[in-house]
Computed example of a mutant assay.
Amino acid sequence: MYVADRTWPELGEYVAEQSLAVVPLGSTEQHGPHLPLSTDHLIAESLARAATERTGHLCTPTIHIGVSPHHRQFHGTMWVDPPAFRSYIESLTRNLTYHGIDRVVYVNAHGGNTVHLREVGRRLRDDGEAYAIEWMWDESIPDLVNDIFEHNGPHGGPKETAMIMHIARELVREDQLDSARDGGVVSLADADPRKFGARTFYDAADNTENGVLGDQTDATPEKGREIFEAATDQLVHLLEWLDAQPFESLLPKPHVDPQPGSRR
């Protein structure tokens, strides 16, 4: 159920019986010469809408801009600073709790958002307001992704390319797949991202001239459909599991005995 397409009486019927919402999040940032800047938020929204159509749960509008300063050297990349992002997501989620939502799944397709979503989720859980967790699509099907693509690549690689080929093929510059591969870094090991155990890079441009990693020529719409359907299945399972949990079981466990001050 997509919230923006509903009337308020229809949503009243939902919150009278249900308490789970899905929030898709991504970014608007460079994804090489072959993929649109909308790649991450298109993937997040498509997966969230597909899963909630199957389960009947509430899906909010998509958050299009995330924490992406590490792509700032490339034209068109947009970002918000981490404190502003965390504040916005927390405020949005507290808004949902006002309407009766007490559990939220952040359907995330941008790695730069992950740690901040986890922090927001911890705050909400510690306050007893909501149980909010982050879900990253490729982390739900790691074995499948690694089996399908020889040189996967964490950004702008074949997994994201195949996904967009499936979701919106007209946005993929297929004549640029060779140049994306040849101008980027096919193997992450070749980017030399660490030295003596330290992360010596801060920006994507420190590792790759055209902003991408992996072999984009290995992507096909058929592979995109396979990983899209597999990830959607995983998200459906997560929503069904979370919906079935008693809210009290999702809150922080009590302090171990003896309780502080119990002997005073």
Rank of each mutant, 00 (worst) to 15 (best):
V3A: 14
V15Q: 04
A21Y: 06
G26R: 07
Q30L: 09
Q30Y: 00
P33M: 00
H34F: 12
P36F: 04
L37T: 02
L37H: 11
L42S: 08
L47R: 03
A48Y: 06
A50W: 00
T52V: 13
R54W: 03
H64Y: 13
H64G: 04
H64T: 15
V67H: 04
S68Q: 06
M78D: 06
V80Q: 03
P82F: 02
P82Q: 02
P83Y: 06
E90V: 01
S91D: 15
L96P: 05
Y98M: 10
V104K: 02
Y106H: 07
A109W: 08
H110Y: 11
L117Q: 07
L117W: 08
G121R: 02
R122K: 13
R125H: 11
A130E: 05
W137L: 05
S140K: 11
D147G: 14
I148T: 15
E160L: 10
A162K: 07
A162M: 08
M163Y: 07
I164P: 12
M165I: 10
R169H: 14
V172F: 07
R173M: 11
E174D: 13
D178G: 09
R181H: 12
D182G: 02
G183H: 11
S187M: 11
A189N: 10
A198R: 12
D206W: 10
E209P: 02
G214L: 01
Q216D: 00
D218H: 04
D218R: 04
D218E: 15
A219R: 03
E222W: 01
R225M: 10
T232Y: 00
L238S: 10
P252E: 12
P258M: 06
Q259C: 00
S262E: 15
S262W: 10
S262P: 01
R263V: 11
R264A: 14
